[in-house]
């Protein structure tokens, strides 16, 4: 059984026939070739697969592609505009907010969701907002600094 889905990803429309069981993350990675969104667990707990669905951070491993039918999605590939890095991307680079980079796309999109809701978070609020995203490299120290820097620069 296949199901027709149509959605907008990073401003481009896509239509596909998919198996209903296909996870959104596999749709993005394997149907659209947008491999910036990563998979790190199977229990919705690592956050590596976080994308924005209709503006809200979502773990794309815990959503079926068919559920996202009609939605507008932003992945890490769509965050920069006209070649200019998003303030969060810039801050992660400037402040060494990443090492291996595997958690980074999800981390940045989770942070983008936070700054959308709370443009001026303190460190405690940043840490709470990122609790669903595991980074094994940085110990979170520079990630927190980077999100704060982005907020100060008006990332939202």
């Amino acid at each position: 059984m296949s199901y027709h889905v149509q959605l907008e990803v990073n401003g481009r429309r896509h239509e596909r026939e998919v198996e209903p069981r296909m996870l959104l993350v596999h749709f993005l990675r394997e149907e659209l070739g947008l491999t910036g969104t990563n998979v790190g667990c199977e229990t919705s707990l690592c956050g590596a697969c976080t994308v924005l669905v209709d503006g809200a951070a979502v773990k794309s491993c815990t959503q079926l592609a068919v559920q996202a039918d009609g939605a507008s999605i932003t992945t890490i590939e769509g965050l920069a505009t006209n070649g200019e890095l998003h303030a969060l991307q810039q801050a992660f680079w400037d402040l060494h907010g990443l090492q291996c980079g595997y958690c980074t796309p999800g981390m940045i999109l989770a942070a983008a969701d936070l700054l959308e809701r709370n443009p001026d978070p303190d460190d405690g609020e940043i840490r709470e907002a990122l609790k669903g995203n595991v980074c094994r490299c940085t110990g979170y120290h520079n990630i927190v600094r980077a999100v704060r820097r982005a907020a100060e620069g008006g990332a939202a």
Binding site: G36, E77, L85, F92, G101, T104, P105
Partner: peptide
């Protein structure tokens, strides 16, 4: 970093 923060890194 430029590749890794934009999703261009290839794992």
């Amino acid at each position: 970093d430029p590749d890794l923060i934009t999703g261009r890194g290839r794992y």
